[in-house]
Design a binder for these strands. Structure first.
Lengths: 250, 250
DNA sequence: GCTGAGCAGGTTGTCTGACAAGCAGACGAC
DNA sequence: GTCGTCTGCTTGTCAGACAACCTGCTCAGC
């Protein structure tokens, strides 16, 4: 799910549809181990009877669970819990918005991938790749000068670096992460964020990454990317504790 | 989708169900840009008529596209292409098995995450974490000695390291990747793989990672993880070219 | 001319009933 | 004991209907 700043107080428990509720119920039963991999689900009409809904609703719920890789169906035999439920696709926060406490962990995942991406981009970038990155960098600068929204330009810069790795999977994953982080980038471009010159700080970090990629220096690129991720995290208030020694022993 | 070694020659074009076909058709139209984000899909009965299927099939197809984040529906208004189609979840190879040519790229993604995971594990592991990793390592050794299948034990070793980061998202992603790579681990444990002493080579690399984590040495852990990933790739025939200078200029 | 209420048509959500396709265990013939 | 067949059950698909809801249009009122 997308990271949403407003917690939206009233929709804590949102019974948005019968199929939705049934999906949650069944998924919970699978993840809780109540329905082990390989186990057969009750028949559709039985599920409908137990939950008080029609077979159409049951079928829709099972269709979604199938799409997420939680169950598999065999005509005539029944519906079965998949061998590796939920591992067909990867989601950040399977349901509901991401909690602020999780952001630090997400930043670590993002850092792992972005740093490696910067390193590979420095090794493999072509002249055209570099030009594309330079253009994206200029777009961010323009947004800073014009006072317009730079969230899109920022995302394009990171995508351009990913493209320079010539690795489609890496690109897709960077895009996936970037999308979920897009809302966290927004505070930097608000009035208060500008006054604190946060976009300028980010842009300095961007330029450092760009310079390292330009001179094909993987180590410097990785270091610059690490610095940028750390800077981003601290700018939005996710304290990037580095090796705090507290509460370490088990 | 899971990586499957046998190409399964006959199921190249598998019309496994009407809803399946409709899902592919619509998703292709969305990814091809034919249906732009925000655009409204034809009504369900219209889609049914155009593709020659009933509304039930259309609803099942749309339910799956909803689950994957490609479309959103609003009762009374219609179904709309999502703002960021396909970015709600991340999949390796959205349909069909992974092609051998992609494996090198996937190894790069996996390396990025596993190396960072090893580094964090070395920084944060508790005594209990280390003990769990040691146990997993012993399981792999036992599989080597007994001549039994070590794929599961191998996976458990990597999961134990991920657990030592105390980062739930990292753990889930490692598990996700590990699942999709589980089939690539299998050749090492076959008769020919054993004769080539591939499990022994992998286990030496495992021990190096373990030692670095044990002495809380993040740099060595990262280096050992890099070596292991490179070793795995080369053992299954994915040549881990390091900076081949050929065809570099644009 | 402009505004706002109300209506009408269309769309998704849900229900019901039915039949086809396919699977699995039981049963009986040999 | 083994092998076919048969029967019941389950999923896949179809058809029709109504409820809940949204959107644009009409038209009275100002």
């Amino acid at each position: 799910m997308k990271i949403e700043p407003p917690p939206a107080a009233e929709e804590v428990a949102r019974p948005r549809g019968l199929a939705d509720q049934l999906v949650r119920a069944l998924r919970g039963r699978i993840e809780g181990g109540e329905l082990a991999p390989g186990a057969r689900l009750p028949a559709e009409h039985a599920l409908g009877e137990r939950f008080g809904v029609s077979r159409a609703v049951v079928r829709e719920a099972i269709a979604r669970l199938k799409a997420d890789g939680y169950v598999e169906t065999r005509q005539g035999a029944g519906a079965f819990v998949a061998g590796a439920p939920g591992l067909a696709s990867f989601r950040l926060a399977p349901d509901g918005p991401i909690e602020p406490g999780e952001l630090a962990q997400l930043f670590e995942l993002r850092a792992a991938v972005e740093v490696a991406t910067a390193r590979l981009a420095a090794e493999r970038r072509t002249r055209a790749d570099l030009e594309a990155i330079r253009r994206a960098l200029r777009e961010v600068s323009r947004a800073i000068e014009d006072g317009t929204d730079g969230v899109a330009a920022d995302g394009a810069f990171h995508r351009a670096i990913a493209a320079a790795t010539h690795n489609g999977h890496l690109q897709r994953f960077i895009e996936f992460l970037g999308y979920h982080f897009s809302e966290t980038r927004r505070p930097a471009w608000t009035e208060t964020g500008r006054r604190a010159r946060r976009p300028h700080a980010a842009q300095r970090e961007h330029e450092r990454i760009f310079a390292a990629i330009a001179r094909r220096d993987p180590v410097a690129a990785a270091r610059a990317a690490t610095g940028h991720l750390r800077g981003s995290a601290s700018r939005i208030g996710v304290l990037g504790k580095r090796r705090s020694r507290a509460k370490r022993r088990a």
